[in-house]
Amino acid sequence: MQPDITTTPALEVHDLTVAFDRKPVLWNIDLKLPAGKLIGIIGPNGAGKSTLIKTVMGLLPLSSGYVRLYDQPIDNVRGRISYVPQRESVDWDFPASVMDVVLMGRYGKLGLFRRVRQADRDVALDCLRKVGMEAYANRQISQLSGGQQQRTFLARALAQQADIYFMDEPFAGVDAATEKAIIGLLQAMTEAQKTVIVVHHDLQSVTRYFDWVIMLNTRLVACGPTETTFTQQNLQETYGGKLTLLSDVGDLIRREHFPNREGISKPAL
């Protein structure tokens, strides 16, 4: 099923298993993604889409397997990755302006203790311009609409000047104009050889938006170029009900306090 990627893959995931409270939510994922593509992750609710990108970025512990970005462990290439979390994951009543949030995208490059410089402000303003939000730079984030919040997050990710972008449902709850603006921007980014990986919900737009798709339902159904992978059969397999037996075994692992892999169990109370 895996098409060959001749050059170094932007992302390689090998035999990845992730468990919450011992129950595996992702089973043995193997995939390689090429650089410079716009890649969609699709699958039903609870399929583990967000979990996959969070684990790849090292935000969640993995039960088995490994992840390599540009053929290196994640911690060696932190400066090259960028993350757009789900919009609802933060409290927008936080006392900060749009500019403050976008400047956070510079913190990784700045390092600990250092103050924001004018050069960082210039980059941030430039990124705000790219998402059409420069007029809102001094606006309080509590006053933004959903689409504006999403654009702010996007500008923050752009300010990192990374090579690979992970975006968790950037189109959730945004208006049509914002969605169009965002997708245009993402396509321009991939033309500049950036890799953009997007957790996506709307099946209607998959073929229009993405070069590649990852089809996920607690295990990998398919991963490859959209035209050959986004097929009726794969869709059926992704959305056609959960694998009940797999889920039941996951529950059993939790109930019985079983380790996911022999030999690496931690004591539990």
């Binding site: 969070k54 090292g58 935000l59 911690d75 990755i81 993350y83 979390p85 933060v90 936080f94 990784g108």
Partner: peptide, 14 residues
């Protein structure tokens, strides 16, 4: 940053 968005802070390697 940590108060606003902890997951993001983690993702940039803080």
């Amino acid at each position: 940053l940590l108060a606003f968005d902890k997951a993001y802070a983690q993702s940039i390697g803080l």
